[in-house]
């Protein structure tokens, strides 16, 4: 288990403020946040590569705050692979063995298994300069895991790869996590990676952690306007709250529960919004009629903006639905969503 308590860091260009985090053993934990949020700094601080101003880092019961990086048992994998260019693939992978007392037959078994899982057998004698991006990142993973670290830190390991390599390395990551006892802590921007790999996650912004929790919880119940915006909450409004409903610029929205009176914002995920030509008869508490003001092609989906009084709601529909419903700008439609789809913070 990794425990971080009251961590503060002051670099010239980055500051981390009061970071508190608990990550369970063998968990796959993801750190999200915009560029410049301090995610890499936090990883390097955990690895002991950046000095702390204050705070504590523990692995299990052992405090590692004052230990040099080589004594922590924490491996790190970077976005740009950071392979040693003067060493072969095999020498790269076995580099850490020089400094660890690992039984030789055990090490050989481990090496074979990593070469197999990461499909690196044919590349052992090559130099990094002769590898593709996906191959380099697989070597970096093997090198990091060869020393059996307690924690593996991954700094956007997939973001420099082509989409097809990305899927391949992502699959390898998942297999490696499932078959080891190592705790994985990964930084990423990509929600597909978050949803397919992580159990829990944290969202960082400007050197602080905005929210920590299960991935589902973060996506469905963002704890702040920033998190809502970051994870893609398009319908984010300032609201006033009265018992079980809220008012947004004259539109009454049912919440179906009493909320914290200090709340100021409300949000609905676009995919929770149903758009129809005829009034939708269901148990949904929120039903409105409005006019389509905009239709945006977003690749797999279309984003439909519907004006209801002074409020513009955005919903997502597929291309099929768009054609079937004969939707176009300027026509009247109905918008519905459940009270439970309304997030308040």
């Amino acid at each position: 288990m990794i425990t971080i308590r009251g961590l503060n860091i002051d670099l010239r260009e980055f500051q981390l403020r009061n970071i508190n985090l608990e990550i369970a053993e063998n968990e796959f934990f993801i750190l999200m946040g915009p560029t410049g949020a301090g995610k890499t700094v936090l990883l390097e601080a955990i690895a002991g590569l950046i000095p702390l101003m204050s705070g504590k880092i523990l692995i299990g019961e052992r405090e590692i705050t004052g230990l040099p990086p080589e004594k922590r048992g924490i491996s790190i994998v970077y976005q740009d692979y950071a392979l040693f260019p003067h060493l072969t693939v095999l020498q790269n992978i076995t580099y850490g063995l020089h400094f660890h007392r690992i039984d030789k037959t055990h090490a050989e078994k481990r090496l074979d298994r990593l070469l197999e899982v990461l499909n690196l057998f044919g590349l052992k004698q090559r130099f990094p300069v002769n590898l593709s991006g996906g191959e380099k990142q697989r070597v970096a993973l093997a090198r990091a895991l060869m020393v059996e670290p307690k924690v593996l830190l991954l700094d956007e390991p997939l973001s420099a790869l082509d989409p097809n390599f990305r899927e391949e390395v992502r699959g390898a990551l998942k297999r490696l996590h499932q078959s080891s006892t190592t705790t994985f802590l990964m930084v990423t921007h990509d929600f597909v990676e978050v949803l397919s790999l992580a159990g829990r996650a944290a969202v960082m912004n400007k050197g602080r952690i905005e929210q920590t929790g299960h991935v589902k919880e973060i996506f469905e119940k963002p704890a702040s306007p920033f998190v809502a915006d970051f994870v893609g909450m398009k319908n984010l409004f300032k609201a006033s709250f009265n018992e079980t409903y809220a008012m947004v610029s004259g539109v009454r929205i049912e919440i179906g529960r009493t909320v914290d009176p200090s709340s100021q914002y409300l949000a609905v995920r676009p995919e929770d919004i149903i758009i129809s030509r005829n009034k939708f008869s269901s148990s949904m508490r929120n039903n409105y009629s409005g006019i389509i003001t905009q239709i945006n092609n977003q690749g797999f989906y279309y984003e439909i903006a519907v004006q209801i009084k002074d409020v513009s709601f955005k919903g997502l529909i597929t291309k099929g639905a768009l054609i079937e419903l004969v939707l176009e700008e300027g026509i009247p439609v109905y918008v519905s969503f459940k009270a439970s789809a309304v997030h308040v913070f």
Binding site: A47, E70, S75, I76, Y95
Partner: peptide
């Protein structure tokens, strides 16, 4: 790249090694 040195440290090598 300083990252090469950082990776080396994280793999167990001292500053000297």
């Amino acid at each position: 790249s300083p990252r090469l040195e950082k990776v080396s440290r994280s793999l167990g090598a001292s500053l000297f090694s």
